[in-house]
């Protein structure tokens, strides 16, 4: 139940040559832990996330998701792996405009060949967890930016992924809402026991993460532990500990 990147190298075409986006990156994120990947723009953060999400196949190295190594897998198998094992929280909420908040979550069941109607209780449960159960029947244009981002997070958790990949979740939010979102991600990571990777250039809200890793020119720096300060509770969320408690996983090990 973890994410493992081993000696991953990724290059892009760049004129006559190739640009190295990731240079022999190795990283291990155990279940129930939150690792923040920080770095300046163009450092390779998004490439790291795309490789971990199986959206790009690296030039070399392996990606292992919950014990499954993706090397050699076909497009269909990767799609299925993504559907069952990986939750993605996009930088922009990327919600479908025609669906209500609850339906944004129910559609995940439909993608998996299950009845969206039967997935509604699960959708409401997750919306409740992110403090939006009262907004379940609202469409994206009727929600605030922070609310949309929380729906985005809840959607990523519908299929109970073992790996949660989060891309710049606070880039479009003000300081207070950004802090609330990071707090929510931290608590959900521990509660759902996911191996969570949070990519961000914003270091302001990283007090509660388990580990911070810096990317520079495609290379991973030495890991630093998070400060483990007590997270602030976002308005509308149940108090910490009110949900089923999950044991925290071991500290992230970056190889």
């Amino acid at each position: 139940m973890s994410l493992h990147l081993n000696d991953v190298t990724l290059t892009y075409p760049d004129g006559d040559g190739r640009l190295t986006a990731l240079d022999r990156v190795s990283m291990h994120v155990p279940e129930g832990s939150l690792t923040a990947v920080v770095g300046p723009s163009g450092s390779g953060k998004s490439s790291l996330l795309a490789v971990a999400a199986t959206l790009i196949t690296p030039d070399s190295g392996t990606v292992t998701v919950d014990g499954t190594t993706t090397a050699g897998m076909g497009r269909g198998a990767l799609t299925e792996l993504r559907r069952h094992k990986i939750g993605i929280v996009f930088q922009q909420p990327n919600l479908l405009p025609s669906l209500t908040a609850a339906e944004q979550l129910q559609v995940m069941a439909q993608l998996d060949g299950r009845s969206p109607g039967k997935a509604r209780p699960r959708a409401r449960e997750l919306l409740d967890a992110v403090g939006l159960v009262d907004q379940a029947d609202r469409r994206p244009h009727q929600l605030s930016g922070g609310q949309r981002q929380r729906v985005n997070i809840a959607r990523a958790l519908v299929n109970e992924p073992t790996v949660l990949l989060i891309d710049e979740p606070t880039s479009a939010l003000d300081h207070e809402r950004g802090a609330a979102v990071i707090d929510l991600i931290t608590r959900l990571t521990h509660r759902q026991a996911t191996a969570t990777v949070l990519v961000t250039h914003d270091r302001a809200h990283l007090g509660a993460v388990d580990r911070i890793v810096e990317v520079q020119d495609g290379c991973l720096g030495a890991p630093r532990p998070g400060r483990l300060t007590a997270p602030r509770r976002p308005p509308g969320l149940p108090p910490p500990g009110s949900g089923p408690a999950q044991p925290r996983g071991p500290r992230a090990e970056v190889l």
Partner: peptide, 12 residues
């Protein structure tokens, strides 16, 4: 854009 999101989320 919606199609890309759905594909990223695991839609075949």
């Amino acid at each position: 854009g919606d199609v890309a999101v759905l594909k990223a989320l695991g839609a075949s």
